[in-house]
Computed example of a mutant assay.
Amino acid sequence: MNLYAFGKGLVKTVLSPLYRFEVIGKENFPKDGGILLCSNHINALDPPVVGMTAPRTVHFMAKEELFNAPILGSILPKVNAFPVKRGMSDREALRTALKILKNGDVVGLFPEGTRSTDGVLKKGLSGAGFFALRGNADVMPCAIIGPYKAFRKVQVVYGEPILMAPFRERKASAEEVTEVIMASIQKILDDYSVNK
């Protein structure tokens, strides 16, 4: 068993007794090909929760500071995370993400760039659109609907894939594609609720 699979099982074992996870739309997740998995970001637990519920291995882009943490820094590369410098153009992170996508694998990122403290979806950064257009990948929108409170339901909803071919054909901008991605995430947030 590789460390990613072990970590996925460990996260499930630790978190499942605390929260009542409901995963919706896993059947929408393409079984192969490059996928950019884009989710809203409401809690530090979001990356392991998305990784736990996604049907494919996810390579997460994580802020560089986390890789300098004593224990976490040595674990992250072994569970397919790679560093990105925040607030600047990080060419190495760009190259890494594009290579993963072009290899037909899944890159996970949170287009808002940081956690939303009030749960309201913020404007997405244009990097999401850039990766979607340049990475020869389609986009899987995802929404995490909380709150993360003990013994309460947390929904992880995977929407319909956003096919990128039409956007590439008409040379759409990264900003436009990011807006489409964020609108798809917002639609999931509007359509689902832990109270439904």
Rank of each mutant, 00 (worst) to 15 (best):
M1A: 11
M1L: 03
N2W: 07
L3A: 05
A5W: 06
L10G: 07
K12N: 07
K12A: 01
T13E: 04
V14R: 04
L15M: 04
L15C: 03
S16F: 07
P17R: 12
L18Q: 06
L18V: 02
Y19V: 05
Y19T: 02
I24L: 02
I24N: 12
N28K: 12
N28P: 04
F29C: 13
P30N: 04
K31F: 01
L36W: 08
S39P: 13
S39D: 10
N40C: 14
H41W: 14
L45S: 10
P47C: 15
P48C: 08
V50Y: 15
G51A: 15
M52F: 06
T57A: 14
V58C: 12
M61D: 13
K63E: 10
E64I: 07
L66H: 03
N68E: 01
I71Q: 03
L72K: 02
L72M: 05
L72P: 00
P77M: 14
K78I: 09
N80Y: 15
A81G: 11
F82V: 10
V84H: 08
R86V: 09
M88H: 14
M88E: 11
S89W: 09
D90W: 08
R91P: 00
R95K: 15
R95D: 15
K99S: 15
G104N: 12
D105R: 05
D105P: 00
V106L: 15
V106C: 12
V107K: 02
V107P: 03
G108S: 11
L109T: 03
L109H: 10
F110T: 02
E112R: 08
T114R: 03
R115W: 01
R115K: 13
R115H: 08
T117L: 09
L121Q: 05
K122N: 07
K123S: 04
G124S: 12
G124Y: 15
L125M: 09
S126C: 01
S126V: 09
G127I: 07
A128K: 06
F130M: 13
F130R: 10
L133G: 03
R134T: 00
N136V: 08
N136H: 10
D138Y: 06
M140F: 07
M140G: 01
P141K: 11
I144T: 04
G146M: 01
F151V: 04
R152Q: 10
K153S: 06
V154F: 06
Q155H: 11
V157W: 11
Y158H: 09
G159Y: 03
G159T: 11
E160N: 04
I162Y: 14
F167L: 10
F167G: 08
R168S: 13
K171W: 12
A174V: 06
E175G: 00
E179C: 00
V180Y: 00
I181M: 09
I181N: 05
M182F: 08
A183P: 01
I185V: 13
K187T: 10
K187Q: 12
L189M: 05
S193H: 07
